[in-house]
Amino acid sequence: MLRFVFKTLSFALSAAQRLSAAVGARALPAPLALLCAGGCGDEGGRGTLAVSVYGEPFIEEGIPASAVDDGWSVRFSSFRVELRAVEVGGARLLVGRDLELAAPSGGEGVAAGSLALPSGAHPALAYELGALRVAGEARHEGRGEVRRFDWLLDVPTRYERCALGLSLGSGEEARAELTIHADHLLYDSLVAEEPGLLFGPLAAADADGDGEVTRAELEAASVGALDVGSGGEVGDLWAWLRAHARTVGHLNGEGHCDARALDAEGGAP
């Protein structure tokens, strides 16, 4: 419940931005449309979609213990996502760079670029993420324990059929926010509709007790009682973390996408 309240508050903090994205250009037509008045549109009518990537307070400020079910809190010193491309209809924005999401952005996220689109309806958006670089530390105040982590999760994933619901007028500019949900990395299930959040299993993987949870330690640690789902192929915590890393992408806050692995692990081309 606390996690729900926290997430609700987080959501509210950037509600205005999300609203503007959800309704497309209609929330911010005047100044931006003026900028484009001379040349953004064509005779068939064109508009612009500005794309940003936002990690929400969970990435910029951390995941508080109140949101986690086993007393751990997590702060990210770095949360870099490799944004490869964004697609709307036939238009493709090639980005091809890492974006740092851990720095405070005032709810704006990090600008990724813009897409020029024909005016009209654009129901869906797709985007591709490559590697995630996630570094920071977790604390358990009750036990006085700290764990550091610095993980490179190379999980190329295409997020597609994200519900954009954009109706773009000629000369208008709309916004789309690619929202990254860091809390998915703490999910206690790969299949539950309402998973809990745990850091304890990852903390316990620190086999040498040096306070840093490494990839090698995670690879050596079983998923134990965590629910890997019906497939059963995920056996160690590194694979577990990689599987969750393929689910972090959303659109405009809580908007869901279909996620598809782009590497051999996923069997995709």
């Binding site: 299949v191 995920v234 969750h244 598809r260 692995a261 996923g266 069997g267």
Partner: peptide, 17 residues
């Protein structure tokens, strides 16, 4: 069947053999 928010559909795509 497609994944919604990390559901099993994704695992189907990502881990099926």
């Amino acid at each position: 069947l497609h994944a919604r928010g990390g559901g099993w559909g994704l695992l189907g795509a990502a881990w099926a053999h």
